[in-house]
């Protein structure tokens, strides 16, 4: 089973933070040093990876066309699925990035005796979309801990996210949806045989890490309440580069578990498949227009190659060509 290494790793991280702060009182390490290092690793690693990709050439224009090309004026072009201009590409990319257009196309193919059958398969799309949007909203919500005063849009987002007005403190909808979505994505990997077969520790680990981070956050909000004002003092200290010694603030262990898991996620990000977040923007099959017949695309490393010239061909077949009555360059 490839789940166990990932599960044990995630568990070890939780225990590490619990022991580090709960037993050894290394608040500064877990509350200041590691978050700084993690964030630095994230930024540097992310940039490094994108630069590595960016340095690679794009020799050919290879969009995967998913609709009608631009052609005769009376044939309707599918501008979003087969873009021929930068604006149309932007439209296609927005659909991909915000709505997961390609995943929405997903179909299920089954073997029914001697025939194949096709069916709808939108759950992966839905699970993925719900997770990513929840994640985004949660990240934005967390900005309130790093900005003072909290900007109105962030407060608005918070209000929107808790508009159900359930419980105290108020229930965030995204807290629920992210846990549901992550659980679905995880169970799918475990339950669907073909997906389990292709899954690696590197697929389970980020899901478990995310799930643990989300759950620790939820626990902190509703069950092991921490002093939110103290937390904000700490986070404001971090963001203003005047970190307070967190040992003086009385913040529960659960907070340190949460921030440690999030730090691990950040540090792990650039080394992992999570980099699809940056990669999706650079994918040549999606971010290029299908106009290479109308506008020349240049390959930066194009080099001359040895060909078999017509003169050599004529040399090879001159007699036969003459007999067949073909025009010749040299008699």
């Amino acid at each position: 089973m490839k789940i166990w290494p990932s599960f044990l790793a995630a568990l070890a991280l939780v225990l590490l933070a619990w022991a580090g702060v709960g037993l050894f009182h290394w608040q500064t390490l877990f509350g200041v040093v590691i978050p700084y290092l993690a964030f630095l690793t994230f930024v540097a690693g992310f940039i490094r990876r994108v630069v590595l990709w960016g340095r690679s050439a794009v020799p050919f224009r290879i969009p995967t066309t998913c609709g009608q090309q631009k052609t005769l004026p009376w044939i309707k072009q599918d501008k979003l699925e087969n873009p021929s201009s930068p604006w149309q590409v932007l439209g296609r990319m927005c659909l991909e990035v915000f709505l997961f257009r390609s995943l929405f196309r997903n179909i299920r193919t089954e073997k029914r005796g001697a025939a194949l059958g096709f069916g709808s398969a939108k759950w992966l799309w839905l699970g993925g979309l719900v997770f990513h949007w929840s994640m985004l909203i949660i990240l934005l919500r967390h900005l309130r801990l790093f900005l003072n005063p909290v900007p109105a849009p962030i407060r608005g987002l918070e209000a929107l996210d808790s508009f159900l007005q359930i419980g105290a403190p108020l229930l965030y909808i995204t807290d629920l949806t992210i846990v549901f979505a992550l659980t679905y994505l995880f169970l799918r990997r475990v339950v669907v045989p073909s997906v389990r077969y292709i899954s690696q520790p590197a697929d389970y680990f980020p899901l478990l890490l995310l799930l643990a981070a989300a759950l620790s956050g939820i626990l902190m909000r509703w069950f092991f309440r921490v002093d939110i004002r103290a937390v904000k003092e700490l986070t404001m200290g971090l963001v203003t580069f005047h970190p307070l010694p967190p040992g003086q603030l009385s913040i529960g262990v659960i907070f340190y578990i949460h921030i440690f898991l999030v730090s691990c996620l950040f540090a792990y990000f650039p080394w992992s498949k999570l980099m699809h977040a940056g990669g999706v923007f650079l994918s040549p099959t999606r971010n290029m227009s299908n106009n290479s017949r109308a506008v020349r695309h240049v390959n930066p490393w194009n080099y001359p190659v040895k060909t078999h010239a017509y003169a050599e061909y004529e040399e090879q077949f001159r007699e036969k060509m003459r007999k067949a009555g073909l025009p010749l360059e040299t008699e």
Binding site: R49, L52, W53, G54, R55, S56, A57, V58, P59, I62, S102, L103, N106, R108, T109, L124, G128, V192, S194, V195, I198, S199, Q200, D203, K273, M275, H276, G279, V280, L282, S283, P284, T285, W301
Partner: peptide, 24 residues
């Protein structure tokens, strides 16, 4: 080839093994 083709280098890195391609 990783230097010559961004597609190649990128596609080596970013697959999340979601399985959408599997039965295609």
């Amino acid at each position: 080839r990783m230097k010559k083709y961004r597609s190649f280098r990128l596609f080596l890195d970013i697959c999340v093994r979601c399985g959408a391609c599997a039965d295609k």
